[in-house]
Design a protein around this nucleic acid. Structure first.
Length: 514
RNA sequence: GGCGCUAUGGUGUAAUUGGUUAACACGCUGCCCUCUCAAGGCAGAGAGUACGGGUUCGAUCCCCGUUAGCGCUACCA
């Protein structure tokens, strides 16, 4: 088995493309085959090196390693050209001397429809090209005279093209529906369908797994394989990923929401993103069918039992093209709601991973985030290694993205943090007596010996009794004083993690905010 | 315009490929827990499977039509 991921480098890596890459990779790993990468950069105007880099980075981020050397399609242009010329020699393609029609990119779709309508009026069909049956001598002579020509595949007048798609089943199309497609532009530039086929033959691809947008054009490509006397690979087309409302998910309209880098930059874990992506259009079932997990089994939460949370190796183990289904998946998000800027389930899944990932896997990711935001200190990997691990464990429980470690979690890693306005209002300003009580509490905290979760609690509760206020008042005020937030972990754990000196200091400073 | 693909709660998916009170996850509501917020536990709302016809003792599942969305139809990829 040899599969490939063949993106065109005309922008950032689209999440749909990322899923295609993932499925190809899973299929290769599952079957013990090879997963190859080919950059389809034949559109010189739109291809950029930057896009190529972002594709490679994206694959690396997702953990999808490719085998063999990456191929640039443009490097093979000469061979594609040669193949087209060879098809002319073999009488399977012909030179079209019709001058090239210029058309604006913007309204091609409209033009296509209009042209089709006009053609049906005049009764012209796909085979009515006057150069289709030009004698080979005359054709060659005109070419030799320097007249420019495009090369078109000579599609049979009658018959049907048939292939069995691993996902969509048997596909049939009348040849009458297929135009004599252009293989080579009049400037000698090879076109997409020719290039893909030639490269797939050259790379000995056995299974082509790609987006459903290529489904109908597959018939054309099969025609090219046949003309070239090459064996046709198996095809598997993947359902498209659409925007809410079943609309097309486009870069232009939906912006960075479709870009993989957005998620990396927003603090998503590759494992979580991958897991979410895998669930779009594919359902792994029976993952733990034999496990016979009892309901309420704490070691196996429901989502795990259902088999939705999967590591890469789980996915590999369970992957099959047969379980991919045909209807398009909707990537749900609400551009007007900051809390729902991307799919709910993706956000949930990321939080789930942050909260459940083995500590040693999470720590490096948090470290990277802290480094990027200038909060990292070398001692977190030295003397305070254990403290760092405990701190992360304490706060990870309620975080959604890696960004939260440097955002909401900022106060745990340094004294420079912001006070949330609403928190100050609710927990500090509501009770004027806190102005005096807080520094006094700070003094008690300072003298607490030993300084532990339990002794801090005892100290605080004792002082609350003494002064006749509710412990909750101190607890909530302290939370805001120490972390700037209204919400967070159990307060005594926070004291313990923040430490005696910083705790006392922050309690005193917060009195000024009252 | 032609051709193709698809259609299960708001979203992702199940339903031994014709026999279930249509299941699970996310989201939503409420309760419990509680120093807050999460997490977790519990309970609940929400679809009779786009619509209309068939076939069948019986259709989410098979067939036809309609509608909607998407794709392709380029000397784009």
């Amino acid at each position: 088995m040899r599969v490939r991921f063949a993106p065109s480098p005309t922008g950032y890596l689209h999440i749909g493309a990322a899923r295609t890459a993932l499925f190809n990779w899973l299929y290769a790993r599952k079957t013990g085959g090879a997963f190859l990468l080919r950059i389809e950069d034949t559109d010189l105007q739109r291809s950029t090196d930057e896009s190529t880099r972002s594709i490679i980075e994206g694959l690396r981020w997702l953990g999808l390693d490719y085998d063999e050397e990456m191929v640039f399609q443009s490097d093979n242009a000469d061979q594609h050209r040669a193949a087209a010329l060879q098809l002319i020699e073999a009488g399977k393609a012909y030179r079209d001397f019709t001058p090239k029609a210029e058309r604006a990119d913007a309204n091609v779709k409209q033009e296509i429809a209009e042209r089709a309508r006009a053609a049906s009026h005049t009764g012209a069909d796909h085979r009515s090209n006057p150069f289709r049956d030009l004698s080979s001598q005359e054709s060659a002579a005109r070419a030799a005279a320097g007249e420019p020509f495009a090369v078109r595949l000579k599609v049979a007048r009658e018959g049907r093209s048939t292939f069995e798609d691993a996902v969509y089943g048997v596909q049939e199309r009348d040849y009458a529906e297929i135009e004599d497609l252009v293989l080579l532009r009049s400037d000698g530039h090879p076109l997409y369908n020719l290039s893909v086929v030639c490269d797939d033959i050259e790379m000995r691809i056995t299974d082509v797994i790609r987006g459903q947008d290529h489904l109908t054009n597959t018939h054309k490509q099969i025609l090219i394989y046949e003309a070239l006397n090459a064996s046709v690979p198996r095809f598997a087309h993947l359902p498209l990923i659409l925007a809410p409302g079943g609309k097309k998910l486009s870069k232009r309209i939906h912006g960075e929401i479709v870009s993989l880098t957005t998620y990396r930059d927003a603090g998503f874990l590759p494992a979580a993103f991958r897991n979410f992506l895998a669930l779009l259009g594919w359902a792994a079932t029976g993952l733990q069918s034999e496990a016979e997990v009892a309901p309420g089994d704490a070691a196996h939460p429901p989502d795990e039992r259902a088999g939705e949370i999967m590591s890469l190796s789980d996915m590999v183990e369970n992957f099959s093209l047969e379980r991919i289904h045909r209807n398009p998946a909707i990537f749900n998000f609400d551009a007007n709601n900051p809390k729902r800027w991307t799919d709910d389930k993706l956000i949930w899944m990321n939080a789930h991973y942050i909260r459940t990932l083995p500590r040693e896997e999470l720590l490096p990711l948090v470290r990277a985030e802290l480094e990027a935001s200038g909060l990292w200190r070398e001692e977190y990997d030295g003397d305070r290694r254990d403290w760092f691990a405990r701190a992360v464990d304490l706060i990870r429980e309620r975080f959604y993205t890696l960004k939260d470690f440097s955002g909401q979690g900022r106060a745990y890693f340094g004294d420079e943090f912001e006070f949330e306005e609403a928190a100050v209002k609710k927990n500090l300003r509501k009770e004027p007596r806190l102005k005096e009580l807080l520094p006094a509490l700070a003094a008690r905290i300072e003298q607490t010996e030993p300084f532990t979760l339990e002794t801090c609690e005892a100290t605080l509760r004792a002082y609350a009794d003494e002064t006749g206020v509710k412990a909750g008042l101190f607890i909530n005020a302290a939370r805001t004083a120490l972390t700037g937030q209204a919400v967070g972990p159990s307060m005594f754990e926070v004291f313990d993690i923040i430490g005696r000196d910083a705790s006392a200091r922050r309690l005193r400073e917060a009195a000024r905010l009252v």
